[in-house]
């Protein structure tokens, strides 16, 4: 999934590197707002979590398995800016220690998997979360849809880059159709895993889910003590 060296021409790589650098600089400021001075340890541990979960192969069916990209999952759990930093750090580690994704293509990978995927997923999530009822189901639906859409959109963004700076003259329509089709399927897996994980965290520690802050306020207002009948325990 990661773009290797030499896939896109030099101007496109340089342009995406500039976009990535700008986006990460913004995220560095935003993450301080999201996590104050605890940003470094919490984002670092969340990045370690994303890295670990990416190694779990979830069964997709028909004998194939897929793994999570985790951008939208991290955005819903810890906030979009921190999620961008987590994805960036994971991509840097993968490029430097596993040669997964080229060094000169690091900007492209950060732009696609960090910025585009998180931005699209988070925008969809916020939009749906605002429209849908403020319930657990509403949050999960919004998270799942955001995760689902983030994957094909990131893939189409890659096709766009390939059309601008690809090294082969492939019909863009064909590539877009193939990449879009495959990534709709991958997106379904991403959505299923994101919903499962967010749902599990919501069940045990709803206060840790950044995207469900609205939900938390709603629960605080419930008149719990009065509604528990005597002898119910």
């Amino acid at each position: 999934m990661h773009v290797p060296d030499g896939f896109l021409d030099a101007p496109t790589s340089a342009a995406t590197a500039a976009v990535a650098a700008g986006g990460v600089a913004l995220a560095l400021r935003g993450a301080r707002r999201e996590l104050d001075e605890r940003a470094a340890p919490l984002a670092g541990l969340t990045a370690a979590f994303v890295f670990a979960v990416q190694m779990v192969n979830f069964p997709v069916g028909a004998g194939t398995s897929g793994h999570l990209m985790g951008g939208v999952l991290a955005a819903v759990l810890v906030g979009p800016w921190t999620a961008v930093l987590c994805m960036t750090v994971v991509l840097v580690v993968q490029a430097l220690l596993f040669a997964d994704g080229g060094l000169t293509a690091l900007g492209t990978n950060v732009t696609l998997l960090g910025l585009v995927a998180v931005a699209v997923g988070w925008a969809v999530f916020r939009l749906l979360a605002a429209v849908l009822p403020k319930t657990r189901t509403g949050v999960l639906t919004a998270a799942g849809t955001g995760a689902f859409l983030s994957v094909p959109v990131a893939a189409l963004a890659f096709v766009g880059l390939f059309a601008v700076g690809g090294v082969a003259d492939v019909a863009v329509g064909t590539v877009a159709a193939a990449m879009g089709g495959v990534h709709v399927l991958i997106g379904l897996g991403e959505a299923a895993i994101t919903v499962a994980v967010v749902g599990a965290v919501l069940a045990v520690r709803p206060d840790l889910v950044h995207g469900a802050r609205a939900l938390r306020r709603a629960t605080l207002l419930a008149e719990r003590p009065a509604s528990v009948p005597a002898g119910a325990r």
């Binding site: 605890r38 470094a40 340890p41 919490l42 670092g44 541990l45 969340t46 370690a48 979590f49 670990a52 979960v53 779990v56 979830f58 069964p59 997709v60 069916g61 759990l77 810890v78 299923a192 895993i193 919903v195 499962a196 994980v197 967010v198 749902g199 599990a200 965290v201 069940a203 045990v204 520690r205 840790l208």
Partner: peptide, 30 residues
């Protein structure tokens, strides 16, 4: 044995509790 989609019912919560543990570890480490 995670061989079909139903395994998500087990793997999802496992990943979820891994997140909770990682995040709490981050707070402790900090």
């Amino acid at each position: 044995q995670g061989r079909h989609l139903g395994a998500l019912k087990v793997l999802g919560p496992a990943a979820g509790s891994l997140f909770v543990r990682s995040y709490e570890r981050g707070e402790r480490v900090h």
